[in-house]
């Protein structure tokens, strides 16, 4: 952990070498992605709800997913950009160091600019929370926290799986986008609005549902079962599996080579 913090400070130092550029991209990122939210607002301007979900409920799911994704893009960027690491041959260098590979991959790249999107998603989250008609209690706050953590865990797993894929094809290809971006765009809405097939995929294959749909139902009081509170925890299993796969990929890398 202390090594990771060291990496964080190194990246901050590098970033601050170009202060102006950093500040400008931070600001532009912050505003550009409001466009996404804007489309939702336009949508709801026409329809008052989608299959019973109101605009603020959608904004809540939306911000939870964006939060997890951008958080990972900031702090686990190295995993997200893993294909670059392999193609440029820098992965070899990590193997030459007596430290955990995954930790080093995380440390390889940290994208502070995307912190603006984390910030932005939190702003939207707060707006959504303030306007939701929910009677808050300790369980529901816990659910919300678990949703945020689960979202991070899930995206980290997806990044890791996409990275593992690089061991097979070298270049990451587009499969990662099917998982992360495609899944992300769908799961920015409560998945209950989709057809059954999509719901199954988003529950059991890419478990976005456990992060932002089932717990949401609990928060909104549409279901009472307490088990829904803990559904984001399933993403930890997902993470474990993806990490194991990654290690398998590392093994294969050393036997197959570049």
């Amino acid at each position: 952990m202390s090594l990771y913090l060291k990496y964080l400070s190194m990246h901050l130092k590098s970033e601050l070498q170009y202060k102006m550029s950093f500040i400008l991209s931070f600001i532009s990122q912050f505003f550009t992605f409001f466009g996404y939210y804007f489309t939702i607002l336009c949508l709801f301007n026409k329809f008052s709800n989608i299959k019973g979900f109101t605009v603020y409920e959608v904004l809540l799911t939306f911000s939870i997913v964006t939060f997890g994704c951008s958080f990972c893009e900031v702090f686990f960027r190295g995993m997200d950009q893993f294909d670059k690491l392999i193609v440029e041959g820098n992965f070899d260098r990590l193997l030459l160091r007596p430290r955990n590979i995954i930790l080093q991959v995380f440390g390889e790249e940290i994208n502070y600019v995307k912190l603006s999107r984390v910030l932005q998603s939190l702003v939207i989250l707060v707006i959504a929370l303030l306007n939701l008609n929910v009677e808050w209690n300790i369980y529901k706050v816990l659910t919300l926290l678990l949703m945020m953590l689960g979202s991070i865990t899930l995206f980290l797993s997806l990044f890791t799986i996409a990275a593992t894929y690089c061991f097979i094809t070298v270049k990451g290809l587009e499969i990662r986008h099917v998982l992360t971006d495609g899944g992300k765009h769908l799961a920015q809405y409560p998945i209950g609005i989709f057809r059954k097939g999509f719901v199954l995929v988003l529950t059991y294959i890419v478990p976005f549902g456990f992060v932002n749909y089932y717990p949401l139902l609990y928060i909104l009081g549409r279901v009472e079962k307490k088990v829904y509170i803990f559904s984001p925890i399933t993403t930890i299993l997902y993470l474990i599996v993806s990490l194991l796969l990654f290690y398998k990929g590392v093994k294969k890398y050393s036997s197959v080579g570049s």
Partner: peptide, 15 residues
């Protein structure tokens, strides 16, 4: 982007 001494310091932690 940063002076070599910072890289050395990181290596100190790595090793």
């Amino acid at each position: 982007d940063i002076p070599a001494i910072d890289s050395f310091n990181l290596l100190k932690d790595i090793y």
